[in-house]
């Protein structure tokens, strides 16, 4: 059986994170993995993500876009959502670990981009936002700021081709 899957020209890929005393966890209503949402149905993608994520996990701390890429015939917009650990409930979780980024050459895209690398870049972008954006700085607690000190800040990027 082939599973039902998202389709369409724009896909939102949401990484839902919660900070704990043991470090950041990847979680969410669709499991500890990128949460795929169809976007572009006449609604701004960030409004779509805010609507669905806010319904599934009330009281979001932060929502930000971090990168985009072209994959499986669609533009994939990656988003980072930060929720309070008290909202994890029965969601499955996995720890977030540091990984090397997939880098392209001057003229070619990297051969493959795993979701862990997209998430690594998202956290590097969050490190940048935590220093450049007052709203983000205030939304994150001290544990987040301590974690992000270890990330080299990066802007919003196109990943891959």
């Amino acid at each position: 059986m082939l599973p039902i899957d998202v389709e369409g020209p724009v896909t939102a890929e949401v990484f839902t994170l919660a900070m704990t005393d043991f470090g950041p966890l990847l979680t969410g209503p669709c499991g500890p993995a990128p949460w795929l949402i169809e976007a572009g149905h006449g609604e701004h993608p960030i409004d779509t993500v805010r609507r669905l994520a806010g319904s599934a996990m009330p009281g979001l701390r932060l929502l930000h876009s971090t990168s985009w890429r072209f994959e499986r015939g669609a533009v994939v917009l990656s988003f980072l959502v930060v929720m309070d650990e008290s909202r994890i409930g029965e969601f499955e979780t996995v720890p977030v670990h540091r990984v090397d980024l997939a880098r392209s050459t001057a003229t070619e895209a990297p051969p493959a981009i795993g979701y862990e690398q997209v998430l690594e870049h998202a956290l590097r972008h969050l490190a940048w936002l935590a220093k450049e954006d007052e709203a983000v700085r205030v939304a994150l607690d001290d544990r987040w700021h301590d974690l992000l000190e270890g990330y080299v800040p990066e802007p919003f990027l196109q990943l891959g081709g």
Binding site: P3, I4, P29, A33, W35, L36, A39
Partner: peptide
């Protein structure tokens, strides 16, 4: 089964309703 791993089971009416609810609420589908 959904590509995200979510599964449901039941008779035809039950799985259609569950799939539609899941698709709408979690995937905007």
């Amino acid at each position: 089964t959904c590509a995200c791993g979510w599964t449901t089971s039941g008779d035809e009416e039950e799985i259609v309703e569950a799939a539609q609810d899941h698709g709408r609420k979690l995937h905007n589908m």
